[in-house]
Nucleic acid binder design. Structure first.
Lengths: 191, 191
DNA sequence: TAACCTTTAATACCAGGTGCCAATAATGGT
DNA sequence: ACCATTATTGGCACCTGGTATTAAAGGTTA
């Protein structure tokens, strides 16, 4: 034993199941070349539930996410969210977001991050983008982490419209700026 | 037997599983007061798969909707393209593009179609969105086919900037309108 | 009465596991 | 060289939530 193989295998196993959670133990034995018992011990140690439990968990998540916050409908990861006030999200530019020749992000991805943050920050059942005025200040490039900050300037609970300003930065540099007008269904509600 | 109970039961069964797809046959027998065999015959007739299959289907749906979230290269199919003049693209709103509650398309997908068309219509090596002024005129809904039409208003081969106007329609109705300023690398090039 | 439909029952079988125990490796420490 | 520990494998019983099939009991109806 090289003291390592087990941990390496654990990492591989986690990675495999991360990429494809639909694998049975039997299929894992083929990929990792160990017995099915070992796979099961590994899952035990790593606290990875059996296939059926995994599927059930996924089904449950998707089922009650229908009635929960639209957080995972957001492009980028929400780092901070103060409803009707401000929000921050992180979005890393990866290969599928850029023009292959130049390595520069396509504008609509940067926009998507800002737009979905602007919608998420509005504390309302239904929030839709009505219009926007946007500027791409400098290109965002492959591998860069974009931090978008959204500020609600006029929440307009009565008027049915809210104004949200979004600034996206890579490090210290601003790459994008946008003013969004968001339709909101009514006054605040929910939770 | 009252000749009806069966159909009534079928309706009830469908309704129960619609409200809570996580019910086992055994739990259904309690609610419907018939034997488990009857439940299974009912599911057969109604073509309702077993619990595990239902969970798997839900898991799969939620799984590849997560995977398809990242927007791809060009959004929509280019139907017509006259470089430096005009272009038309078609984009059909499908389940992964809408808010699940309302069935309304997220703004950034509609934007993405317009933006990628505006970039595609510019006849240059490198074309990037510099800024845009956009309006979402009415929401686009699940299943609707969006036709975006882009017109180059000022190609600005010297100035390094081009102005492109995009209108998106569903049938006769306009759903989106945008004015894009696109950076272009130099004069025209390419074929 | 026979023919039929609906419901229930009984049995064999399956996938994808858990839980447990025992038998081997393989590895280190001394 | 020996022992203890850890890692891996095997085997078996059992569980859940089913499928598939065959059979039987009950009411309905022509």
């Amino acid at each position: 034993m090289e003291r390592l193989p087990k941990r390496q295998r654990h990492q591989q196993l986690s990675k495999l199941l991360d990429e494809n959670p639909f694998l049975t133990d039997r299929e894992l034995t083929r990929q990792l070349k160990v017995s099915i018992q070992t796979i099961r011990l590994d899952r035990l140690e790593l606290a990875i539930p059996e296939l059926r439990e995994r599927l059930k968990l996924m089904a449950e998540r998707s089922y009650d996410s229908v009635r929960s916050l639209p957080l995972h409908e957001v492009i980028g990861d929400i780092l901070d969210l103060q409803l009707d006030k401000s929000g921050i999200s992180l979005f890393e530019i990866s290969a599928e977001h850029v023009f292959s020749r130049s390595g520069i992000a396509r504008g609509h991805h940067v926009f998507a991050q800002a737009n979905s943050l602007a919608v998420a920050v509005i504390n309302d059942e239904i929030a839709l983008t009505a219009s926007a005025d946007i500027r791409f200040i400098r290109p965002a490039r492959l591998g860069e982490k974009c931090i978008a900050k959204a500020y609600v300037r006029a929440s307009g609970e009565q008027k049915g419209k809210a104004k949200v300003e979004v600034f996206t930065y890579v490090g210290e540099e601003m790459v994008f700026q946008g003013n969004f007008i968001i339709y909101r269904s009514a006054g605040e509600s929910k939770t």
